[in-house]
């Protein structure tokens, strides 16, 4: 087991003009861990995720993702990560089958591998009967599960999930977390954002961003103890509310 952290962030600063979106972020994510990245709207989460995914340059700071440098090896990073969000996931006007093959091809899998993995995935999700259905015609719950499976079809080292469960029904939401656990047990590091505070409890460690900085980072158990809170919702409210009253 390689002990080197899969994500290393040291003094990450990102400015937009005079606005500091990320203000000296420092943290590490361990291999195979489920890392919850929480924060209020506008706290700077999306900015940081875009940088970690190689989509935007930091203003300053030292960062390595999956062993690659975010300034000089962005293409390498993109090949070694998966990404899924509620907004961007699958192509509505392609079928289930076509979406899987499309993503597998984008990630450069060989024809043979594409056939093999598509087959495995259809069986696993029980979608063989429905493979010719257009994405726009399938229920949201299926879409979310399929989008996640597609995001890890190339066995990435890390998968970034940006509010993956927004709006889905409570049973599907829990099935989705089963899939996250499974991916983590197969060695994929999971970096996840959510507004559902019960989901924060399912993470190995959680960071809470407030106003561009990391206000807290620890296991859910340790955070609950530290803030004398019954659950993560209370921890979050304490940290985020303290800041909000100042700004608005």
């Amino acid at each position: 087991m390689n002990q080197q952290p899969i994500i290393i962030v040291k003094d990450l600063v990102k400015k937009f003009g005079s606005f500091v979106a990320n203000d000296h972020l420092t943290f590490k994510v361990k291999r195979g861990e489920i890392f919850g990245f929480l924060g209020a709207n506008g706290a700077g989460k999306t900015t940081a995720i875009r940088i970690l995914c190689g989509l935007s340059f930091p203003t300053s700071g030292e960062l390595s993702v999956a062993g690659y440098n975010v300034y000089t090896q962005r293409e390498k990073i993109k090949q070694n990560i998966g990404y899924m969000s509620q907004k961007f996931s699958l192509y509505d006007d392609l079928t289930i089958f076509e979406n899987i093959r499309f993503y597998a091809a984008i990630y450069g899998l060989s024809k043979k591998e594409i056939d093999r993995r598509t087959d495995i995935l259809m069986k696993k999700l029980g979608l063989e009967e429905a493979k010719k259905k257009l994405i726009r015609d399938i229920p949201l719950g299926w879409k979310q599960k399929l989008a996640f499976s597609v995001a890890i079809i190339h066995d990435p080292k890390i998968v970034f999930l940006d509010e993956p469960t927004g709006g889905v029904d409570p049973i599907t939401r829990r099935q989705f977390w089963d899939m996250i656990y499974e991916a983590a047990r197969n060695g994929i590091t999971v970096f996840v954002t959510t507004h559902y505070m019960d989901e924060a409890e399912y993470c190995d460690r959680v960071s809470i961003m407030v106003d561009g900085r990391i206000a807290a980072l620890d296991t859910p158990v340790a955070l609950r103890e530290k803030y004398h809170a019954k659950n993560m919702n209370e921890v979050f409210l304490q940290l985020a509310r303290a800041q909000k009253t100042e700004v608005l």
């Binding site: 924060g39 209020a40 709207n41 509010e163 927004g166 709006g167 507004h195 505070m197 919702n233 979050f236 409210l237 985020a240 509310r241 909000k244």
Partner: peptide, 10 residues
Amino acid sequence: TTGVDAVSRQ
């Protein structure tokens, strides 16, 4: 409140 954080929701 969809996509809105826990504090703003409250």
